Simulated scan of single mutants.
Amino acid sequence: MSVLIIDGLKLFNTAFAVGNPYVAYGSLRTSSEQNQQKGLKEMLCSVIHMVRNVTAHELRIHGDVNEKDAVDIMT
């Protein structure tokens, strides 16, 4: 269970923030590690834009993304 009660982009931006993250991909001491953290956060945010937002804000007939399509988008 998370202590964060937000979702979507706000959740990823908060959870994976470089300054004070809830989840860190490394020690975040070097600029390379900070870039990896930012990259992971941005990839997760892209999934929100490409999959979650489309299915949440479109009629099911227009925005239905099945599991195979979602996996294809993430890979």
Rank of each mutant, 00 (worst) to 15 (best):
S2N: 05
S2V: 01
V3P: 00
L4A: 06
I5C: 05
I6K: 06
I6D: 00
L9Q: 04
K10W: 07
K10V: 11
L11I: 01
F12V: 07
N13F: 01
N13A: 02
A15W: 02
F16W: 12
A17S: 15
A17Q: 05
A17E: 06
A17P: 03
A17V: 08
V18P: 00
V18A: 08
G19E: 15
G19S: 15
N20P: 00
N20V: 07
N20Q: 12
N20L: 10
N20R: 12
P21K: 08
Y22Q: 09
Y22D: 11
Y22R: 11
Y22V: 14
Y25D: 04
Y25P: 05
G26I: 06
S27W: 05
L28A: 04
L28K: 01
L28C: 05
L28F: 06
L28N: 05
L28I: 06
R29H: 13
R29C: 09
T30E: 02
S31W: 10
S32E: 14
Q34P: 01
Q34A: 08
N35S: 09
Q36W: 04
Q37H: 06
Q37T: 05
G39N: 14
G39A: 11
K41W: 00
E42A: 13
M43W: 07
S46N: 15
S46G: 12
V47Y: 09
I48A: 04
I48R: 03
H49K: 13
H49V: 09
M50W: 09
V51A: 07
R52L: 13
R52P: 00
V54N: 01
V54H: 04
T55L: 06
A56H: 14
H57C: 09
E58F: 06
L59R: 14
R60H: 10
I61V: 15
H62G: 07
G63E: 10
D64T: 13
D64M: 12
D64K: 13
V65Y: 06
V65G: 01
V65N: 09
V65F: 12
V65D: 02
N66M: 06
E67M: 13
K68M: 10
K68C: 08
D69L: 13
A70H: 04
A70R: 04
A70F: 07
A70Q: 01
I73Y: 09
I73L: 07
M74Q: 07
T75V: 05
T75S: 05
